[in-house]
């Protein structure tokens, strides 16, 4: 067996796979965050809680209603997305005209409420979700658990479908145009308030979908999204929120960077993304894919 800089290949590729998986979640979450920010002018702090709700919805569907993973993969994001729609209609839409910081504070408060309630009802220890595709393949240089491979591919497909939806379809054109000039788009006869609600629902659904995918890999727990959303903020600062493809590339890339750090200097693996953020702020303050304004 060959070795790379004294690192056994199993460890290297194993960590790279973990990095890709984390990157997949960073990409999906930062994508939703960016799309929501573009339309609503709100940084959705509730994103981590909604990711957690996706995982919980799938777990509850399985344990209480016996609904299998593949059905929950579709159902849970819809349920959580509808929850997002209600949130937007009842609260968020009343604060669009205010400074960004109020949206940030409101969604932070909502995250506290949601995570607190889940913690109160189900505790914070977490519950396992059985892998829907057990087993794996020995690739020679590493062992690939089938489900983990599936997650990476599925996340990539989801990201590309989202990109296609926004950049290449009629609905996506409405969305891009309304991000630029909502008044004019509305004066063309498009129901922009409904478009905004829909956008929030889709962004939240995307976070929940990531949560469902994460359920069999991580423990399903009330606080599983708390730290994740903070890392995703750093990812968003690094990538800039101007470009959809930028969010995807930055998300996966930073996951890989994190994985590599785990191999070569484990103590820094928690902080490396924040260090990258500091460097990007020094070198290119608008973010790697951000427009300089």
């Amino acid at each position: 067996m060959f070795e790379l800089l004294g690192i056994p290949p199993q460890a290297l590729f194993g960590q790279l796979l973990l990095g890709l998986i984390n990157g997949a979640f960073y990409a999906m979450l930062s994508l939703g965050l960016a799309v929501i920010f573009g339309m609503l002018n709100v940084i959705n702090f509730t994103h981590g809680a909604q990711y957690m709700m996706g995982a919980f919805a799938a777990w509850l569907m399985l344990t209480i209603l016996d609904i299998p993973f593949w059905v929950a993969l579709v159902l849970a994001p819809i349920v959580v997305g509808l929850f997002g729609v209600v949130l937007e209609k009842v609260m968020l839409k009343r604060i669009y005209h205010l400074d960004h910081l109020y949206g940030f504070l409101l969604t932070f408060g909502l995250a506290l409420v949601i995570e607190g309630l889940f913690q109160w009802k189900w505790g914070s220890s977490g519950a396992p979700y059985p892998s829907p595709i057990p087993g794996g393949t020995n690739l020679g240089f590493m062992f690939l658990p089938t489900y983990r491979g599936f997650v990476v591919v599925a996340a990539l497909v989801i990201c590309l479908v989202t990109w296609y939806g926004i950049e290449r379809t009629r609905l996506g054109a409405y969305l891009r145009a309304a991000t630029e000039n909502p008044t004019l788009v509305r004066a063309f006869g498009i129901n922009v308030p409904r478009l905004i609600t829909l956008t929030y629902g889709l962004g939240v659904g995307l976070a929940a979908l990531a949560g469902v995918l994460a359920a069999p890999i991580q423990q399903v727990s009330a606080l599983m999204g708390t730290n994740l959303v903070l890392v995703v903020f750093a990812v968003v600062v690094i990538g800039g929120m101007g470009s959809i493809m930028g969010s995807i590339v930055t998300g996966f890339g930073l996951g890989l960077v994190e994985g590599l750090t785990k191999v070569f200097y484990p103590p820094a693996s928690n902080t490396v993304i924040f260090v990258v953020m500091a460097i990007v702020l020094l070198v290119k303050p608008a973010g790697l894919f951000g427009q300089t304004k």
Binding site: L105, L106, F108, G109, L110, A111, L112, V113, I114, E115, G116, L117, Q119, W120, S124
Partner: peptide, 11 residues
């Protein structure tokens, strides 16, 4: 945990 919930509600 309810302290957090209440703080969230206050927010």
């Amino acid at each position: 945990e309810f302290v957090l919930v209440i703080q969230g509600v206050i927010f």
